[in-house]
Amino acid sequence: MSEQPPRSGEITSAITPSRVIVALCLIAPFVAMLWVGSYARVEPAVIGIPFFYWYQMAWVLLSTALTSVAYILVRRERRVRKGGTPE
């Protein structure tokens, strides 16, 4: 029962460190927004905006950054698997 090496172009389902980082980057915003008890309060207010609102708006920007990081990591991994070099 020896395992055959993957053929060129065949997708393998290996868990790599970059895939774990990608998963964390994509899951973090969902967990932060679904855990309402962590941000359901008024204080601390920033320039008169209650915490409840500015926390959610901050996650819009953080989600964008985390999704960009995930995209870059996935693109780099695909390039390496196809035989190219990482940037």
Rank of each mutant, 00 (worst) to 15 (best):
16 T>N: 10
66 L>T: 10
51 F>W: 03
45 A>C: 15
3 E>L: 15
17 P>M: 15
84 G>L: 00
4 Q>W: 03
83 G>I: 09
62 L>V: 05
34 L>Y: 12
2 S>N: 15
87 E>V: 06
86 P>G: 06
67 T>A: 13
51 F>Y: 08
84 G>M: 01
39 Y>G: 02
15 I>N: 10
32 A>D: 04
26 L>H: 06
11 I>C: 10
64 T>W: 10
26 L>R: 09
80 V>P: 11
18 S>I: 13
64 T>L: 10
24 L>N: 03
9 G>S: 15
61 L>A: 07
6 P>E: 05
78 R>H: 10
85 T>H: 15
86 P>T: 07
33 M>F: 11
79 R>P: 06
20 V>H: 13
68 S>E: 14
73 L>Y: 13
4 Q>F: 05
81 R>N: 14
52 F>E: 12
25 C>K: 08
79 R>Q: 09
39 Y>M: 02
75 R>M: 02
35 W>Y: 11
51 F>G: 02
56 Q>P: 01
31 V>E: 05
68 S>I: 10
42 V>I: 15
46 V>Q: 05
66 L>M: 11
27 I>G: 03
28 A>Y: 01
6 P>K: 06
32 A>G: 04
66 L>Y: 11
86 P>M: 05
38 S>V: 10
56 Q>R: 01
39 Y>D: 01
55 Y>M: 00
